[in-house]
Write a protein that binds this DNA or RNA. Structure first.
Lengths: 168, 168
DNA sequence: TTTGTTGCAAAACATTTGCACCCTG
DNA sequence: CAGGGTGCAAATGTTTTGCAACAAA
């Protein structure tokens, strides 16, 4: 299932190659320093790749893309840095099934998804009440909540109308 | 009528070892035949284990438990059958981080999961308020809700204590 | 008897780690 | 120049697969 930022209006998920952030080298350096790490060429190139490339990439994909600009890079470096970024919440890891993890620069604002099972359209939403209840549930079981995934699946208005049209 | 053990009220997730279903060999055979597969001792023992054991188990755990009753069993058999069961929706697979997948007989009654990001322990919960809010969100965007996935991730009490112990 | 199923071992796969060398701060 | 960072290769851990022997229908 595709997770799309600004999905409203997009016809084709491939369009997700658009830049999500508009970050410069200065920003990348700040991010790296905020984690208490040294600034290296490798790390800059990895961040650049995450900011400019497709929205959800696997570690292998990052490695391959990065290898064009920086052929000496080893994949261990990519994995190590992605892990750091994830731990520090600059990057969000999305895992589906047994598939390799996919990474994206953490969106500034948390959101959940409402996905149409028929046409794949995705609407993002935010609901503070639900978030609050989630915290309560976690607390009740002694958990310290770190994050969550809420995906609602249904049929959008257009597809509901389409179905009715076909039935007639 | 299936008996569903809910986490609500449980102090300790380990208590979820209680039986969730009350299934007999007859039921197991029916399930296997419904998938168009042959009934074998191995498959019966695996189903028995899923029905009687702890609620969320990894393939390795199933393999170990099963090995007591059936020492010749290889783990490939466990993996193969769990995959079949998952494909046919008799079993639900829960994956988190890079941790091994956990399996449960697909519950008759809907519930969501609270998963420990450190040890992989899973607590089930049901929260009608959250469900209601989800419906409201869907309605607001003109969606007809069909289903949803809500997974909360955090650190369980035990792992919180372990972390503190190490820090000290 | 025929076809599916099993156990074993090896393979596949993503990810992590040990270590000597290298570069940033 | 000290300590973190890197590339490489080997290790890890889970899951899958090839294959010959075997068992269910």
């Amino acid at each position: 299932m595709s997770e799309v930022i600004l999905a409203e209006g997009l016809q084709n998920p491939e369009e997700q190659v658009l830049k999500r952030e508009n970050l410069t080298e200065k920003d990348f350096k700040k991010i790296i320093r905020q984690m208490g790490l040294k600034v290296t060429q490798q790390r800059l190139v990895i961040l650049e790749t995450l900011a400019e490339g497709r929205v959800h990439v696997t570690a292998q994909e990052v490695f391959e893309i990065v290898n064009d600009k920086f052929p000496e890079m080893g994949f261990a470096t990519v994995y190590r840095f992605l892990r750091k970024l994830t731990e520090n919440n600059f990057v969000t890891e999305v895992r589906m099934g047994g598939l390799p993890a996919r990474y994206e620069l953490t969106p500034k604002r948390h959101h959940d998804h409402l996905t149409c099972v028929q046409c794949g359209k995705i609407v993002e939403f935010e609901n503070q009440e639900i978030e609050k209840l989630q915290e309560q549930v976690a607390k009740k079981f002694g958990f310290e909540l770190t994050n969550h995934v809420l995906e609602l699946y249904g049929k959008c208005r257009d597809c509901q109308l389409n179905s009715k049209r076909k039935e007639a």
